[in-house]
């Protein structure tokens, strides 16, 4: 004996219709269950996407990003001031007072250091600007998902109340029937292309951002590993 879901068949064994019990026919209930499953198959993907999208973004705190941006600003200013001061100190040594044989070389080193600190400072400043933009975008995103999730919840509640006979079901069916097979394949191809291209563009943008922002910050290990106590780069 199994209690699992069975579609009743007229004249099968056992016959679901027992003349002895009054109104003991389970067919309406079983059809309702089947409808509920189909309904869940249509509604759940949307519901899951929106709910998970919202749920995964819940711990985000834009203030954390604003604080990090403040930190980057401070780092940029300090590094810039250090480079400028070093260059001024170098320039303020008069030629008569200091005639080192490798003065030219040292001057080149200082100029290089000042340029490197300027570029590192620029990196830090643009990073802090990016963090601020992202913090505000993130806030908008969070509020958008608040709204979107409430709308979806309302939608889901209405669908549950109306059931398979309701307007939402008909809308989904009409949408599916409007396309023939060719059109469906074209729609699917467009969908896939859009998402693959989106991924490529996002990966490229990420690579470019990383390259641009860490230019003065990433250590470049040449042959023989990092050299201790070098000011260059």
């Amino acid at each position: 004996m199994s209690d699992g879901f069975k579609i009743p068949v007229w004249g099968g064994t056992p016959d679901p219709f027992q003349p002895g019990d009054h109104g003991g026919d389970l067919k309406p209930m079983q059809y309702a269950t089947l409808g509920l499953y189909a309904f869940a198959a249509v509604i759940l993907p949307t519901y899951e996407r929106v709910l998970l999208g919202y749920g995964l973004s819940v711990p985000a705190d834009p203030q954390v990003m604003h604080r990090a941006a403040d930190g980057w600003s401070a780092v940029g200013n300090g590094v810039y001031a250090a480079g400028r001061t070093a260059q001024e100190q170098h320039d303020s040594v008069s030629l008569a007072a200091w005639q080192s044989p490798d003065r030219e070389l040292y001057g080149q080193n200082v100029a290089q250091y000042a340029m490197a600190s300027t570029s590192a400072s620029d990196s830090a400043q643009s990073l802090s600007w990016l963090m601020r933009v992202m913090a505000n975008t993130w806030t908008v995103y969070i509020y958008y998902h608040f709204g979107s999730a409430s709308l979806t919840m309302m939608h889901a509640a209405k669908s549950l109340l109306l059931g398979p006979g309701g307007g939402i079901w008909a809308q989904v069916e009409a949408q599916a029937r409007a396309y023939d097979t060719t059109q469906r394949i074209i729609a699917m191809r467009n969908f896939v292309l859009l998402h693959v291209l989106g991924l490529v563009v996002k990966w490229g943008a990420g690579w470019m951002t990383d390259h641009a922002l860490t230019e003065g910050l990433k250590p470049e290990y040449g042959a023989g590993g990092p050299k201790a106590g070098t000011v260059e780069a």
Partner: peptide
Amino acid sequence: MRMGLWSMG
């Protein structure tokens, strides 16, 4: 300054 790995979900 360090945001923490899970601060943005």
